[in-house]
Design a protein around this nucleic acid. Structure first.
Length: 460
DNA sequence: TTTTGAGTTGTTCGA
DNA sequence: GTCGAACAACTCAAA
């Protein structure tokens, strides 16, 4: 350790434990500054939900640092070099960002730093196995999940490192006077409350999940009514926990294997997006570019109905309303609602992906947009595009008692059991007996739209 | 180079 | 209700 100053620039790694960038900075420098930059370019597309969650994470991090988190607002390529000069830092440490914007931003930040005789040190990443690590025998990036996952498991990951003991890092106090305040997000915030943020909360969720529901995860994960998933996705998004910390604690059971596969999907899609950054907006499979999507006034009306959870298909509406209420949706229902937008309403996946990104507290560009591409049949999945979810059958199968639907769609609470998935079969008097307002009739006929979707995909 | 097996998560239909 | 086949045809990855 020498007598120099380093900046640890926190981005989506808002934790002290198992943080290699922080570790490297503390080992190499006598003084360390913890910094976070509120970047308008990232703030703009984020909905209020993620901004609120982010602020919770920053509050927790600042508390863990004894009030020594330096926050700034502005374009990082201006803010970071200025801060480095102000505190005479010789290096800025970050966890590497592999997203399309992150790669560009970090190069733009690095140039002026280097010009001033400083360095940008990329140490670690938000992934168990970072992008650009695994390749096929032919040396190309993987395009299929299963062979990627085999190599991912063979490759393995580092053991987590502990948080530095308190007092072992010389965190510099931030200067007064106090910073003006954080920029807030745009748009409405979830009406039903957002999940708790911060590293301690992530650890609590992990403890709870790994001690309990992980065992039944293989089957239970598909049941939105039971809601036995880990709820760790927002924490993985903001790095209040690293996947490595979770993988290190997983047992050998079937549930643990299935769940680690979800972490593998996260790494896979990050790898795919890194190698094909344009697929954040465009079809991964160019062969699908000819698919005809609906546009115009009727399409806009249908899109609005979908967003608000008023399609007349109960499981779809329950999911979309859960998203509005909580900024989160159960993954099975994400697939059902996505399939409905693309295959029943014939709207382009990018519209749905943007709406999800705006609402989701865990919204991650790679996972979200490539999940959408999987549903739309434009993505990495080589499987048949005629896989079209039947929203009624999916509801009956995965919400077998109708509890999930009734939780989020009050107009249907008068219908008991699984019959709630087919409200159009109810006598009108029974349907609205509790006076909670009118539930819409289905805005489209699934059977007909399924045929239409098949035809469109064949014509492409 | 050629061959071979496989590809997250499904639906419908008919026996 | 349960079960198996058909749904079309292609691309990927490894042998």
């Amino acid at each position: 350790m020498d007598d120099t100053t380093a900046i640890v620039w926190f981005r989506r790694d808002l934790r002290l434990a198992d943080n290699p960038a922080l570790q490297a900075a503390a080992e190499g420098h006598g003084r360390v500054i913890a910094a976070f930059v509120h970047d308008p370019a990232l703030l703009r597309p984020s909905g209020a939900n993620r901004v609120v969650f982010l602020h919770g994470c920053l509050d927790a991090l600042d508390a863990d640092l004894g009030g020594r988190l330096w926050e700034r607002e502005g374009d990082p390529q201006l803010v970071l070099p200025r801060l480095a000069e102000e505190v005479e830092a010789t290096a800025v440490y970050v966890a590497e960002d592999f997203g399309p914007y992150g790669v560009r931003r970090d190069l733009a930040v690095e140039a002026p730093l280097v010009a001033a005789g400083r360095t940008l040190e990329r140490v670690g990443s938000p992934y168990a196995v970072p992008p650009d690590t695994l390749f096929t025998g032919g040396g190309t990036p993987f395009k299929v999940f299963t062979p990627f996952s085999r190599q991912w498991r063979d490759h393995g990951w580092d053991e987590p490192i502990r948080a530095p003991a308190s007092g072992s890092v010389s965190w510099l106090a931030r200067p007064g006077p106090e910073w003006a305040g954080r920029p807030t997000g745009s748009g409405p915030e979830a009406t039903g409350g957002l999940p708790a943020a911060g590293e301690a909360e992530a650890a609590r969720l992990a403890d709870e999940f790994l001690a309990g529901h992980v065992d039944g995860y293989t089957d239970d994960r598909n049941r939105p009514d039971l809601d036995l998933t880990s709820r760790l996705s927002p924490h993985l998004k903001y790095g209040t926990v690293h996947p490595r910390q979770l993988l290190a604690r997983l047992g050998r059971g079937a549930g643990a294997h299935t769940w680690s596969g979800e972490l593998c999907w996260r790494d896979f899609y990050a790898d795919v997006l890194y190698h094909r950054p344009e697929t954040a907006r465009q079809n991964y499979s160019v062969a699908m570019n000819g698919i005809e999507w609906d546009t115009g006034a009727r399409a806009d009306d249908r899109f609005a109905a979908w967003c608000q959870g008023r399609t007349g298909y109960p499981i779809v509406d329950a999911g979309m309303r859960q998203l509005l209420a909580e900024g989160w949706m159960h993954n099975r229902v994400r697939m059902i609602t996505a399939s409905f937008l693309v295959k029943d309403l014939h709207l382009e996946w990018t519209r749905g992906a943007r709406w999800f990104m705006r609402q989701l507290v865990d919204g991650d560009l790679a996972s979200n947009n490539h999940g959408w591409q999987w549903t739309a049949g434009t993505g990495t999945d080589a499987a048949p595009f005629f896989r079209i979810f039947n929203p009624t059958a999916q509801g009956q199968r995965f919400d077998p008692h109708g509890d999930y639907v009734r939780r989020y769609v009050p107009e249907l609470r008068a219908i008991a059991g699984k019959a709630v998935h087919e409200p159009w079969k109810q006598a009108e008097a029974d349907l609205f007996s509790d006076g909670t307002g009118q539930y819409p009739s289905p805005i489209v006929d699934h059977k007909a739209e399924r045929e239409d979707a098949l035809a469109r995909y064949q014509r492409r």
